[in-house]
Simulated scan of single mutants.
Amino acid sequence: MSEAPRFVEIDWAGRRVRVEHQWIAPERRAAPLIVFLHEGLGSLSMWKDFPQRLCDAAGCRGLVWSRPGYGRSTPRAAEEAWNPDFMHRQAHEVLPALLEALDVDVAATPPWLFGHSDGASITLLYAARFPKQLAGAIVLAPHILVEDLSVNSIEKARNAYLETDLRQRLARHHDDPDSAFWGWNDIWLAPGFRDWTIEPELASIVCPLLAVQGLDDEYGTLEQIRGIARRAPQTELLELPACGHSPHRDQPEGLIAASTDFIRRHHYNHGD
């Protein structure tokens, strides 16, 4: 069963920020832990029941959380503009601080990471920086470089936020939808972000890795996951038909089956 969302405080960016989080099936004390990292406009609540379904199928525990600036976590300050290294900082600073605050012993029992979109890129950056502190990773629609397709879709999202009910819909999931939207949208459309890439870091990833992308993804081409596999040869690829940018919404059954098989193979093959 899932516990109710709760909050923990961490020190980050020179201030105390609260992080909304939720444990799934904490009673499975000996089971692997999956940590879920949401997309650029996501939050704990926007995952809906997918983390619970995956953890139940795989027999795992889960940790779902909202990054600072999202959900019920501390919003981004009005004057705070994200820099091109914002995903690096999430991977290198925020996620480790959260795991420490929640007493997750990454040395004794490394967790699994399950990331979507920006959260998938953060997952890859964590895997590259802390190779001994995770058991494996599953990344959905990751970004390893900026493509014209991504920028065009993010420009459309800006228009939708200004001209449609997108802000009202996001307000159901974020205490401050403007914090969530403009933090993400402004940096992705900044001219200085066009040269952003995490390709050099990928060769440092040694853990088992499953990279998933929909064939109809409006935010990235298949080069995003195929580029990972070229640099981290242990990567397994899953290319899903009839699937856009959110495989956990468009193809949940197939994704759960593939993820469960992947986790079980690599967890038990290592004698855990």
Rank of each mutant, 00 (worst) to 15 (best):
C60K: 07
H92D: 08
Q133L: 10
A101K: 10
D49L: 12
A57L: 06
C55G: 07
R72T: 05
M46R: 11
H88K: 12
A58C: 08
E100Y: 03
P111E: 04
F50E: 11
R72D: 14
W82A: 09
R61W: 07
A57G: 09
L63N: 01
Y126N: 05
F130E: 05
D118A: 09
W47M: 03
Y70I: 09
A108T: 06
F50A: 10
A97L: 12
T109A: 14
Q90E: 15
A58M: 06
S45C: 02
S73G: 14
D85C: 06
C55N: 01
L99V: 06
P111H: 07
Y126H: 09
T123F: 05
V106I: 04
G69R: 01
P96T: 09
A120T: 13
P111D: 06
F114Y: 15
A128F: 08
E80F: 11
A81S: 15
G40R: 02
G115T: 11
A107H: 11
K132A: 14
L63Y: 07
L63A: 11
Q133T: 01
R129K: 14
W112K: 05
T74M: 14
G40F: 06
S73V: 12
D103P: 00
R76S: 07
A58H: 09
Y70N: 11
L44P: 01
Q52A: 14
L63G: 08
Q133W: 04
Q90H: 12
N83Q: 15
T123V: 06
W47L: 02
W112T: 07
A81V: 14
R61D: 07
A97V: 07
D56M: 00
A137M: 03
D56V: 02
G71L: 00
N83G: 15
W82L: 13
P75F: 14
T74H: 14
E80I: 08
A101D: 11
A81T: 15
V104F: 00
W112Y: 14
H88M: 12
W65S: 06
D56N: 09
A78G: 06
S117P: 00
A77Y: 03
E100M: 02
S117Q: 10
L63T: 02
A137S: 04
V64M: 07
L125V: 08
P84W: 07
A135E: 12
G115S: 09
A58L: 10
A107E: 15
M87C: 08
E39A: 09
